[in-house]
Simulated assay, not measured.
Amino acid sequence: MDGTEQVIVDFRSSWQFVRGLTRDFVEQTPQDRYAFSPHARFGSMDRQFRHVLQVTDLYTDTLRSRVLSMPTKFARYGGSLDRDDLLAGLERADAELSAVVDELGAEAVAANYQFGDTAMGIGELFDVFIEHEANHHGLWSAYAAVGGWSTPESWRDAWDL
């Protein structure tokens, strides 16, 4: 396996892990807690879920254009804050991201990606994708603790959260 393939394999493995945890949380958060927020500064659970879906679209567009452009975050998800719509949206966004990752060649892996004022290599960009998702996991575990519901078993097994 060459370096290009390894970067992609490593990202896919990490993304599958963190996105699996995300899906578990979306699926297992009680419906009556979807509108819950622990503080006015933080979006409700359903808005948090929509945010990670929209950011996945942003990642896809960033890989295509090599420039992070915040307006694209809002361009493709037109669904509601309903669990089924959010899960369908995550499935669609993940399929699109996977297709773009499939198309990455050596040139794309060697390229720089503009993330605000920072130029990043593909490995760094993939790390940001994973880190962003994991940051939300930390928030969500706090939401669940304050809001009075349990995190999914996968979260307790992986992180003891």
Rank of each mutant, 00 (worst) to 15 (best):
G3M: 10
T4Q: 07
V7H: 07
I8G: 09
V18I: 15
G20C: 02
L21E: 02
D32M: 07
Y34Q: 08
A35G: 13
A35M: 01
S37N: 04
H39I: 09
F42H: 15
M45G: 02
D46K: 07
Q48L: 11
Q48A: 07
V52W: 00
T56A: 10
D57H: 15
Y59N: 11
Y59R: 04
D61T: 06
S69F: 11
M70C: 05
P71W: 07
F74C: 03
R76L: 04
Y77L: 10
R83G: 01
R83E: 00
R83Y: 01
D84W: 05
D85G: 09
A88C: 07
L90A: 07
E91W: 03
L97M: 09
L97N: 05
S98V: 10
S98Y: 09
A99C: 08
E103F: 02
L104F: 08
A106E: 14
A110N: 06
N112Y: 06
Y113T: 01
G116N: 05
M120C: 09
M120R: 14
I122S: 06
F126Q: 07
F129V: 11
E133V: 06
A134W: 04
S141K: 09
V146L: 14
G148V: 06
W149N: 06
P152N: 00
E153M: 03
S154L: 04
R156C: 03
R156M: 10
A158S: 10
